[in-house]
């Protein structure tokens, strides 16, 4: 087992925890954080595989991908937080309830 494999295993763990979090946690902020953890797992995985060839320099491609990914993750988080705040503002809820009780926009 090499170092990158160790980190890869950790990445997968993080990914699963994040997934579990999004699904199970009810509070929206927690869901947001879980999504970030999930993303963190994915990124960690990418960075770890950049070292898969165990030569001196890391593969730059996964690094570039992660960098892009981080920006995207941030945007998603910002959007999610904005929506969360808006939901709280309009309904007072902090969870994704009432899946059936849809009212049409007016």
């Amino acid at each position: 087992m090499s170092q990158y494999q160790l980190y890869a295993v950790g990445a997968v763990l993080l990914f699963c925890i994040g997934l579990q979090g999004i699904i199970v946690c009810r509070h929206l902020l927690k869901k947001v954080m879980a999504a970030n953890i999930m993303g963190g797992g994915a990124f960690l995985f990418l960075i770890s595989i950049a070292r898969r060839n165990t030569i001196e320099t890391a593969d730059p491609v996964p690094h570039a991908m992660v960098l892009t990914g981080i920006v995207i993750a941030l945007s998603a988080s910002v959007l999610a937080l904005a929506l969360t705040r808006q939901i709280h503002k309009t309904t007072g809820h902090t969870t994704l309830e009432d899946p059936t009780n849809n009212r049409v926009e007016k």
Partner: peptide
């Protein structure tokens, strides 16, 4: 249908 909308079920 409401079951399908449940997060746990979806997961």
């Amino acid at each position: 249908e409401s079951l399908l909308k449940n997060w746990t079920a979806a997961g």
